[in-house]
Design a protein around this nucleic acid. Sequence first.
RNA 1: GGGCGGUUAGCUCAGUGGGAGAGCACUCGCUUCACACGCGAGGGGUCGUUGGUUCAAAUCCAAUACCGCCCACCA
Length: 887
Amino acid sequence: MDTPTETTETISSSQQSSRELTKQYNPFEVEDRWVKRWVDEPFTVDAHSDKPAFCIVIPPPNVNGNLHLGHAFDNTIIDTLTRYKRMKGFEALYQPGMDHAGITTQVQVERMLASEGVSRYDLGREGFLKRVWEWKEQYGGIILGQLQRLGASADWSRTRFTMDVGLSQAVRHQFVKLYHEGLAYKGERIVNWDPVSQTTLSDLEVDREERLGKLYTLRYPLADGNTEIRIATVRPETIFADQAVAVHPDDERFRDFVGKQVRIPLTDRFIPIITDEAVEMDFGTGALKITPAHDPTDFDIGERHNLARPSVIDLNAKLTSDLVPTQFQGLDRFTARDVVEAALAEEGTLVTTQDYTVPLGLSQRTKEPVEPILSEQWFVNTDAIAQRVLEGLDTGDITVHPERYGKVNRDWLANLRHWNVSRQLWWGHQIPAWYDPEGNIYVPDMDNPDLDCDDDPRYAHLELTQDPDVFDTWFSSNLWPFSTLGWPNTDDPYFKKFYPTSVLVTGYDIIFFWVARMEMAGYQFTGEKPFSDVLLHGLVLDEQGQKMSKSKGNGVDPLEVIAEFGADALRFAMTYASTGGQDIRWDGRRVEMGRNFNNKLWNAARFAMMYLDDGIDLDANAQLETLPDRWILSRLQRAVADVTDLLDTYDIGAANRRLYDFVWSEFCDWYLEAAKPALREGNTSTKAILGRVFTDILKLLHPLIPFITSELYEAFGFETQLGWATYPEVDDKLINPDAEQHFKNLQDAVTASRNLRTEANIAPNQEIPLVIGGNAKQVIDDNATVLESLARVKLQTEVKGASLSQIVPDLELTLPLEGLIDIDAWQARQQKRLASLQKDIAKSEKKLGNAKFVDNAPAEVVAEEKRRLEESKGLLAGIEASLAQLN
RNA sequence: GGGCGGUUAGCUCAGUGGGAGAGCACUCGCUUCACACGCGAGGGGUCGUUGGUUCAAAUCCAAUACCGCCCACCA
């Protein structure tokens, strides 16, 4: 980009208004300067102010992450709302921070180490963590700079990290409390095991997929040797861990089998036939092999029948157990399946195999098939607190937008299972539980949760070792809305001032991971909701409507977009596209729209400055002398009312579109053009009104596009920065329906004149005579200079010679036929108008002739229909007359 | 198996009961004294399909088709 940039010398505010603005807006120099300013003078908050509080905590990005479009989307919305509220007089806190992202970061650092040929075990726990912290210091926080580049008006002095001392204490406090309330417990359960990263995963971290596999029907011989029972399975390699065969209690087919013993194929072991309601009679053979250690359903059935639960698959997903015959020992689970199948066939216990779609769980991080294994882990009992959240959602204590996601939120909570919070990782909050050699558990007391048990004098006589596991990442981010504000210190002024927070803004894809868990933690630990509203937005998809992902390489890098178009243009594209939680397909044309809009605004400012070379004086005396002035002030009030309303209901996309339309189509296209005659005459009232309206426009737009608006505000000589200015309020006295109607007449006249000019092939810059007739003639006459300027015409009382007429509501315009005109084409077009009018008339007459319509429809609708009919009739007559005149 | 969203102009999308809109693309004309990242004048749609409710349906209801997403322990 070799566009010449302005000089960067410091200019005092009194000179700023005379600063030359480039013809084309160059966002880069401007944005860089404001980024620096907002970092040097962040939008800090005062916890003791009298202003009402407004607070949004950002979804903390991964500490080592890079800004992607999802962040850009989130933070644009967050910043827009925060800036809006700040200007509305709120003490508005944009609370920034980062997440340690346990498994993601650990996998990433391990990968880096692997390239050096080092594993985490080579370094040991302490050495490894040192490396992760080094990595965090080096790369962590890059994303904060990227958020700053986006224009985030955060209070950077309050930046928090989930592994900060204070936030780590919060996590510990949480666990200790849950433990002593009996809600955190250690239990042996079936968990999702990722054999690659060697850790358990919560259900949410497992992606369900369907793979083509086989359904095997096996023969389990009864002890008597004469009969058999057949079972269906997709995992024959797990038969060695079988503890029973189960059938449904009502299943007549197996009535005589229940209680008898069957032999597990390929072994000499016998297991009983039991009954359980969980068995589906219709599926497979109606008989199910029960393997408590390798299947959640089987585990539950095993619990009910007190079955043992031996494992035959180890942490590396290999068959290792005394129960496994030698020839299968050490085989990988998938290899084992084929080998076992062959052996079963040989033994004659394999009845059939058929192709079958097998559900498979994949680790979100490593994409490795997850192995359900039996393991002792820490769980959190969420039963009661989920109910409390459901109540909060039902009573409207928390409101989810759009509403349909409230149902998603609710349904998940209603079917929630206990949360496995322990992870076999090193990067994270190590679990504050200690064990003595006998395996007894020691957890710090509630009144001193930060005291390690191995430092506790009471246990000095014991050999205590701390649990090596760490907590699930979400077991710290669930506290984010209050841990960032000082909790567990409930006397912290920020906690007191800003909690509960106002709105939570995030993508619907983390409702379960994050939103619901914050809701639970909020009620559980603070006794209150963590936020009043949840604003969920959609995902940003690529041009083809596919999810963006690193592996597909179809991602759009927001930083590249900013580098090419500027952050305001990107922000514009993000808010423009946002509607009702819908996914948005990436479309670069929206960024160009933003870029073009910014340029338009920039040039409108340049124009305004030509007449406001002393800056803007908002106190200047201004009379509403001209129709354009009265009109734009009236339209401005409507824009302010609409936009305020839309932002208050979080409809940022509609607010953006409303302002785009107002600024471009009303202010630039009509007002600036219509005001030119008065401005050229030096009308001081019009100048003052131009200044006022433009100032309000900058304020209205500022939350959406903060850079250019701040720059222009400053360029007009305002000393306080725009971010701290007051948002416009509606002034009802300025709403002027008459002015709007009259200006509409003027617009009709201008458009019709231009249309006639085009029809008659008259050069755009050639001034031509025009005669006006009709009901609204007086309005036009009163504003003759405006019409003459906008349409390049000279009003006359009559036209000599051949002429062309155009009929619009309340007006007839006649133009001399000076240029060449394609009469046939003109007539054809008028005929088309006639046909359409005739249709309209017929329709209206039919409607008005319908007694049901006249009786049932609201009076104003009927009146409007009558007015429309009259108007159409008038237009029709006029056009017919002008056509006749031509002939 | 259950739930949700989408289907409107060539493209990307707004619009949720009273005569269909935007941006881009397209046609024609403009170096008009803020802006060619612009200005002006235009062309283009039986609002997926079928049925219903209503004086009135893109909009509400019910089916249906296609596209997409989420949830789920029939092995």
